[in-house]
């Protein structure tokens, strides 16, 4: 079966994208990512510790670049300028790698995206040759504008980052999906497997999550659950669900041949 996720000219088997933050250690990070089956993993760009002991392991030692596609993010950036600067550093860090996750935040309490700055950054990055997957509000007009700018995927929130509140506005997501000619992925807010399945049943091309796995009591088991949920939701979407009706008066068992 070849139902692949296509992003910026590359195909992926897995529709689950995962973050690498909030784990106990790199070993657990790797085990959870292996259990999730994810091929695309997000990383953050931060100042290097100066004076740290040489030879100390780094995240990339546990996630070799030949086995995973990195998606450097701009987490923590509150302006277009900072986001662009961060991703230019990421491109240099990762040897010219152009696939990136743009997120520009507007508020430190909710981590809600600042769409004005996000759009400004997206314009610069697309012009500069980046393949931009963009975290955004679930506003259909914003999503369309980001597509028109040339982003390679839009990633509306299901609910706030790290909240685990699930999909709060499936109707907006459906409008975004119906209008989009690029992949739509849910990014942020997924709390458990059913949330991921619902996102996929709505027609999302993929789901990106971090906390739902990392903050589970057993992250590795949850990573496996998310893998199945994304696959199940995708298959259900492709299969086409039955119509909802209040009642049908059409039993599944024969109405004849009953004993009397």
């Amino acid at each position: 079966m070849s139902d692949l996720l296509n992003i910026a000219g590359k195909s992926y088997q897995s529709r689950l994208l995962v973050g690498t933050g909030k784990y106990q250690d790199f070993k657990q990070t790797r085990a959870a990512i292996d259990a999730s089956g994810a091929e695309i993993v997000t990383v953050a760009i931060r100042r290097t510790n100066i004076g740290q002991t040489a030879g100390e392991p780094s995240l990339l030692d546990f996630l070799p670049p030949d086995q995973f596609t990195y998606l450097p993010n701009t987490a923590g950036c509150y302006s277009a300028d900072d986001a662009v600067r961060t991703l230019r550093l990421a491109r240099e860090l990762l040897d010219g790698h152009t696939l990136v996750k743009l997120e520009v935040l507007g508020d430190p309490n909710t981590l809600y995206p600042n769409m004005i700055e996000t759009i400004a950054a997206a314009k610069v990055l697309v012009k500069d040759g980046f393949d931009v997957m963009v975290y955004c509000s679930d506003d259909p007009i914003m999503a369309k504008q980001l597509e028109d700018i040339g982003c390679c995927a839009v990633m509306p929130l299901a609910s706030l980052i790290g909240s685990g509140m699930g999909i709060l506005n499936p109707w907006n997501l459906q409008i975004i999906i119906a209008n989009a000619n690029i992949p739509v992925l849910v990014d942020a807010g997924v709390g458990t497997a059913s949330d991921a399945a619902i996102a996929m049943e709505l027609g999302c091309q993929g789901v990106l999550m971090n906390t739902a796995i990392a903050a589970a009591r057993d992250p590795i088991q949850m990573a496996g659950a998310m893998k199945k949920a994304v696959e199940a939701g995708r298959e259900a979407y492709l299969a086409g669900r039955m119509a909802k009706k209040l009642y049908s008066a059409s039993p599944s068992s024969p109405t004849t041949g009953l004993i009397s």
Binding site: G19, T20, G21, K22, Y23, F26, T29, T42, V43, A44, I45, R46, R47, T48, I50, S58, L59, L60, Y70, P72, N73, A75, L89, A90, E92, L93, L94, I161, G162, M209, N210, T211
Partner: peptide, 24 residues
């Protein structure tokens, strides 16, 4: 990176040195 060896620093330069870390 290809220019590290022939880029001379000057007093007062502001440098940012970054790497990849875990993130979502």
């Amino acid at each position: 990176r290809s220019q590290f060896a022939n880029t001379l620093l000057a007093a007062g330069d502001q440098l940012e040195i970054v790497g990849a870390v875990g993130g979502g």
